[in-house]
């Protein structure tokens, strides 16, 4: 008897412990959506915030570039090696370019770029705004009758929504280049065969899908960074916690949203 109640209580506790992070994740998701709503309402103020937006675009580009170059080149290379391995002798090597091209533009470049940029840029947004929050700089903005959403969030949001697709195009090119280099250098596929493969079944909508994904990922990265930054409380430790949460949440949301967008784009729209 005693044992049963005991284990039941233990089970209850376990459920509660599992439940709390899930609940707080949904709470945060709600908060993030609310923030997007406020950003959209503040958007008429964009023309007054153009210089800050350009500054953020530059910052996101510069912060991301080195990481994206390395990520994209190696992703393309790995895609080539793995595809060749799976082709074995059954699929002709002229399809190598096709497979690499499609998997890069639809999936690999947008998602890996977003994950890498989400880590780098999301963290730096959360840390910057979090520091501003705990040192009362956000309050100070409000007392100067400046809306922090317009002044801080809007430029980061717009910059990320523009720059993620731009960086993704860049990653598309580099990753395909990486695939080509490996195909030529170590798989014995010549340039002509590779580019013929790329052209085969080439659809503009594939590239377009990747860029739509990138736009949404930019939204997630900037919103999560700003949301958790604004939530920061209690000094340097709070800023650290906000930064970690921003990165974890945006990476998870990117993967989940990737699935949802793939379902919408390839099963509802492009069919």
């Amino acid at each position: 008897m005693v044992n049963v109640t005991h284990s039941r209580r233990a089970l209850g506790n376990t459920l509660e412990e599992l439940g709390r992070p899930v609940l707080s994740f949904f709470e945060d998701l709600g908060g993030a959506f609310t923030l997007i709503g406020r950003v959209l309402r503040a958007s008429p103020g964009l023309f007054r915030t153009i210089d800050l937006t350009v500054e953020q675009m530059f910052k996101i580009g510069v912060e991301s570039l080195p990481l994206v170059v390395v990520t994209a080149l190696f992703t393309g290379g790995v895609a080539a090696v793995q595809a060749a391995y799976q082709f074995q002798d059954y699929v002709p090597m002229r399809y190598l370019g096709t497979v690499i091209g499609k998997s890069v533009v639809i999936e690999l470049a947008p998602v890996l770029t977003a994950l890498v940029v989400g880590g780098r840029v999301g963290a730096s947004i959360a840390a910057e705004l979090g520091t501003m929050k705990v040192t009362e700089q956000i309050d100070a903005l409000e007392t100067l009758a400046i809306d922090p959403v317009r002044y801080l969030v809007l430029p980061r949001f717009v910059a990320a929504c523009i720059m993620l697709p731009v960086i993704t195009i860049f990653a598309d090119i580099l990753a395909i280049g990486g695939g080509w280099a490996v195909a030529r250098g170590s798989l014995g596929v010549d340039t002509h065969t590779f580019t013929e493969g790329l052209r085969l079944f080439f659809y503009v909508r594939d590239i377009f899908s990747g860029l739509i994904k990138a736009l949404f990922f930019g939204m997630i990265i900037s919103t999560m960074g700003c949301y958790y930054g604004f939530q920061a409380e209690g000094g340097a430790e709070g800023v650290g916690r906000a930064t970690t949460r921003a990165v974890v949440s945006s990476c998870l949301s990117i993967l989940v949203l990737d699935y949802l967008l793939a379902s919408v784009l390839f099963r509802l729209i492009w069919t």
């Binding site: 501003m132 040192t135 009362e136 700089q137 309050d139 100070a140 903005l141 409000e142 007392t143 100067l144 009758a145």
Partner: peptide
């Protein structure tokens, strides 16, 4: 309303 106010914060809260 805040346009009529000025506030000095405890740790100054300058935009760094």
């Amino acid at each position: 309303m805040r346009g009529k106010f000025g506030m000095l914060f405890q740790a100054a809260a300058l935009f760094d």
